[in-house]
Structures are given as C-alpha cells and as structure tokens.
Simulated assay, not measured.
Amino acid sequence: MKLLDLGDVRLHYRVDGPDDGAPVVFANSLGTDLRLWDPIMPHLPEGLRLIRFDKRGHGLSTCPPSPYSMGALVTDTEALLDHLGVKDCVFVGLSIGGMIAQGLAVKRLDMIRAMVLSNTAAKIGTPEIWQDRIAGVQSGGIESLADAVMERWFSKGFRATPELELWRNMLTRQEDQGYMGCSAAISGTDFYATTASLRLPTLGIAGAEDGSTPPDLVRETIDLIPGSQFHVIRKAGHLPCVEQPEEYADILTRFLREVGHV
C-alpha cells in the first residue's frame, strides 16, 4: 500500500506487475475502492503494469470536505500518473472512473493512448437526481441508500447470492463526505462536447441489467468517438467486472492486443 501526498488530499494507490510493463490504469466507481478490480486481476495477461487507486474520499485515500469538482478528480489522477512516470497507458474507467478517463484524455493525450469506458457516460443523471442523493446521505448516511444502490449495481441473480453483502459493506463503509463530494462532481459534469473531440482507440462496456448507466446511455457516449467499439455483457449490472470477471477480462485483453499493448 502506498500513499501520495498532493497537499489537500493523499491518494492511496497500488501498482502490480513489472516497472517496465505496459501501463494499464484502473479508476473505480462511486462508492467502491480499488478492490473493485480484484475479480479480473487473475485473468489479465502477465507482464502488464497494473495501476489502481482510491479517488479522494474513498477507500484508504483521505477525505476532504465535500463538494468536489470533476476537475479536481481529474487533476488528482493526472498528478498520480505523473508521479509514477506513466505515459501512453490504457485507461480503464468505470462509472465516475469513466468520466475521469474522458476528462484526462482531453487534458493529457500524451498520458492515454487508448481507453475503456465502462458503465459510464459523458453525462450521468441530472443535477436534481444527484442533489436528492446527496440530501439522502446528509439525512441518513450511505446506509439509507444502500439497498436501492444494490438494485442498480447488480443483476437480480447476483443479488440473491451471499456475495452481495461484500459489496454492500464496501459501499456503506465509504465516507459520507466522499460519497457526497463525488456525487457533486458527477452532477456538475457534461462531457458531450469535449468527448466528441477525442480521437483515440476506445472500447465501451455496458451491463445488460445496469440500473445506473443503461446500455443505451453508454452507447450514446461511445458513439461520440469515431472508430470506437461497444460490448454488452449479459447477466450483469453496473459492475460487470464483479459479476462476469472472466468475460470482462477477455474483452479487455482482446482490446489491449488490438491496440498493441500486450
């Protein structure tokens, strides 16, 4: 476990694989930490430099007071990758992590050679929806939202398994301020115009039963980028890397090979 001090926040990060491996960076969703990617790690090719981190207010990173801006989240990520000397990575972002990917690609194309936009969009929800979510956390904590979040995150089949409790616990043990802060960042983000300006290899991944970012919403964003690919994973919700890790890893590995990263 490593911590990078950026002044107003200290980011927890983890690097697996050789220092000279082709870098793949993973950014996780609202309400999860870097363990979100654990299920796919054993299925990825050897020799990659796999970089994961907890965004501000999540996991083992510190939690500044909310609200946060998307610009701050992008800048945090940029500073971490600069610290690690990362150039020409493939950036895999899920949900808010995919928004960070879009923002960073526009800002630092030298840093990202290809990206995977998983269960995300250029704009997610409306300010009213996010304000209601923030108000719910203010009044009752994340616990008050947890059951509804589980319905959006996971397919009906997965919600009937004991493993659901692991992810519910991960959600409810995040900091309220971190959840509210990142909710505010999503609320204020509309990347349609900037994402449409991008020209880099892009893979979109959606879960067929995603209640947060349905496949049509994901596809609308992926279609903004010429030459992009799109894949729907069946029997999966908002976190297909959890429900269908082997298929997710296979799709990602195929893309890494196509762009010459493996």
Rank of each mutant, 00 (worst) to 15 (best):
K235S: 08
L166W: 05
S183R: 00
E243G: 13
P240E: 09
I225E: 00
H231K: 15
T189G: 07
E175S: 09
F154Y: 14
A135C: 12
T189S: 15
A184D: 01
D176Q: 07
A146S: 15
G227C: 10
L164H: 06
T172A: 05
R159G: 09
S187G: 12
E243A: 12
D223H: 04
P162K: 10
P226I: 06
P240F: 11
P201F: 08
E151I: 15
S212V: 03
G141P: 12
D210L: 13
G237H: 00
D176F: 00
H231Q: 14
V218T: 02
P226C: 08
G140P: 13
S228L: 03
L171E: 01
D190R: 15
G227K: 14
A135P: 01
S144C: 09
E175M: 07
A208W: 03
G141T: 13
P245C: 08
Q174F: 02
S187L: 03
G140A: 12
F230D: 04
G181S: 07
T221E: 04
R199T: 12
E151Y: 15
G141V: 13
G157A: 12
I205A: 04
G227R: 12
C182I: 01
A185L: 06
S228I: 01
R173T: 11
R234L: 12
E165S: 09
V137Y: 02
E165P: 00
I222N: 00
F191D: 01
F154L: 11
R234Q: 13
P226Y: 08
V137L: 07
L145C: 05
N169M: 11
K156G: 14
S187N: 05
L145Q: 02
P245H: 11
T189E: 07
N169G: 10
G157F: 04
T161L: 14
Q177W: 11
E209G: 08
I142F: 10
V242Y: 02
F230I: 05
I225P: 00
N169W: 02
Q177R: 11
T172Y: 04
